[in-house]
Design a protein around this nucleic acid. Structure first.
Lengths: 206, 206
DNA sequence: ACATGACGTGTACAAATGAACACTAAAAAC
DNA sequence: GTTTTTAGTGTTCATTTGTACACGTCATGT
């Protein structure tokens, strides 16, 4: 099945992936031909045929630029660019006047959310949630839905969004920190819940 | 710039993304035409033109199937499928699998590694690393390189891989747990370091 | 020497695909 | 009511793109 690729086949495979990466679309056979300064498209076709025969490439026959990685795309996730906000001064984070610092790309299925879900990310500052194993510098993913008890939520407090745990006591919702050095028991009715945490991404020192 | 899309334009945009998702290649104008049971490809072209004019779609003109999301691909990351090997006992050793259970898709740039790096993932079981804010159920990403002091590493102990912190004392490497209830001070020379932790992905209850 | 396979050339053809024009119809905006 | 926008039809043309065949070169192994 997947025998070894020849040098030329590897070069062509690399070029296909490089083009896919760079411009988002696979190259046509003639574009490959031009890149390798060949005089005929037929040689390219034979290489591409060899690559598909060896399982190094997948192809939708007859269709233009239909060169794909051999993994069926159903197994891959959906890469979405999640806007990362440092702090959210006011309003809902989806408002257009908020400029995200940058974007974090994550796979939605790995996070367990459907691709269409409204997602955003916050970078954690401080140590108020170390009790929940959320460290300074971690990136937390949040979505907009109603909080359930014991959810970790981002709430707007004094113009800054802070991570708290959403709790119920005698039917009254309140927010609690996960660090004993921080005050507890904030009445949740007066606060704007900006999102519910659904995931976390930590990047250890590179 | 990005004015509102009409219903029809939204339908066509959805179909383009659905096709991209499903078969990995964008549809041709005539495939869109066939899906919406139109009689002419020209109507489709005008919709696509409108979408690009409104910034909802990007296009490489003249090229076949060159419909892309409006974000330039340079800003997007590289989605790689990281093999997830069963569970890693962070604490008491349990059973270990050879075959990867499944794959986790992550963006390598978000993790701060180059796309070619050899990556694998393990799911944490147990609570021996709660001191490092690594919880039961977390997915840790590891790469193959020499460990530096204070790196968190996966080590092979009694045929099981376990998460420990790599430390130096008097020039002697040893491994320590991050939970006082677990034993410390394992001589690292006799152990095989299987990988160095470079990231963590946590998925909170959906 | 001979066969075999990887690699390339030149030309030709056909299918896939994008682009264009003139015209019509319905809904929305004015 | 009139104009504008949106949506669609039928047809035609040019370009892009995939596929095919016949032939040549070179290295490699038997």
């Amino acid at each position: 099945m997947s025998s070894t690729l020849t040098d030329r086949q590897q070069q062509i495979l690399d070029f296909i992936y490089a083009t896919l990466e760079k411009q988002g679309v696979a190259p046509s056979l003639r574009e490959i031909q031009a890149h390798f300064k060949l005089a005929s498209p037929f040689g390219v076709k034979r290489h591409v045929d060899a690559l598909t025969a060896k399982g190094a490439l997948r192809r939708l026959e007859g269709k233009a630029r239909a060169l794909l990685p051999p993994l069926p795309p159903a197994r891959r996730g959906t890469l979405t660019d999640v806007p990362l906000f440092g702090t959210i001064p006011a309003g809902l984070p989806t408002a257009k006047d908020q400029e995200p610092e940058r974007f974090v790309s994550v796979d939605t299925t790995s996070l367990g959310v459907r691709p269409g879900a409204s997602l955003y990310a916050l970078q954690v500052r401080g140590d108020s949630m170390t009790g929940a194993s959320i460290l300074d510098g971690d990136v937390v993913f949040l979505t907009l839905r109603a909080p359930r008890p014991r959810d970790i939520v981002a709430a707007l407090i004094d113009g800054e969004s802070t991570l708290k745990r959403f709790l119920l006591r005698n039917g009254q919702p309140y927010l609690g920190a996960e660090n004993p050095r921080y005050p507890d028991l904030l009445p949740a009715q007066e606060l704007v819940i900006q999102g519910v945490m659904i995931g976390l991404l930590r990047r250890v020192h590179p």
